[in-house]
Amino acid sequence: MTPFAIDKPAILERLGGDEDIYLMMLDVFLQDIDNNCAAIEAAAASGDPVRLQREAHTLKSLFATVSDDAGSAEALVLERRAKEGRVDGAVDAAAHLVERLRDVAVVLERELGR
């Protein structure tokens, strides 16, 4: 997967150029990151395809919010597999997504000057 680079103009365009909402959104992303990582790992470990589908869906949306198309696409693959009831390889796939979330978080932290 290509390394994450924040596309601020694209995000701002979606937010109507509102810098305040942009910063607030990044902040909430970072606040929730531990919960989101734990949720996808637990869903993968549970072997419950419905739960896995839901958590993968949430990550897909989360990546899309910060315009991470690659991360969103990978989450979509896991979501679709789970929807078909396939949970094989889910733990590895979830670990991949967690890694991606952490990478994104590093970039966002930098963007916020932390």
Partner: peptide, 15 residues
């Protein structure tokens, strides 16, 4: 159920 969406939608509604 997603905090980020809840926060974002709330901000947009207030705007």
């Amino acid at each position: 159920d997603s905090d980020i969406n809840l926060t974002l939608i709330k901000a947009l509604v207030l705007k």
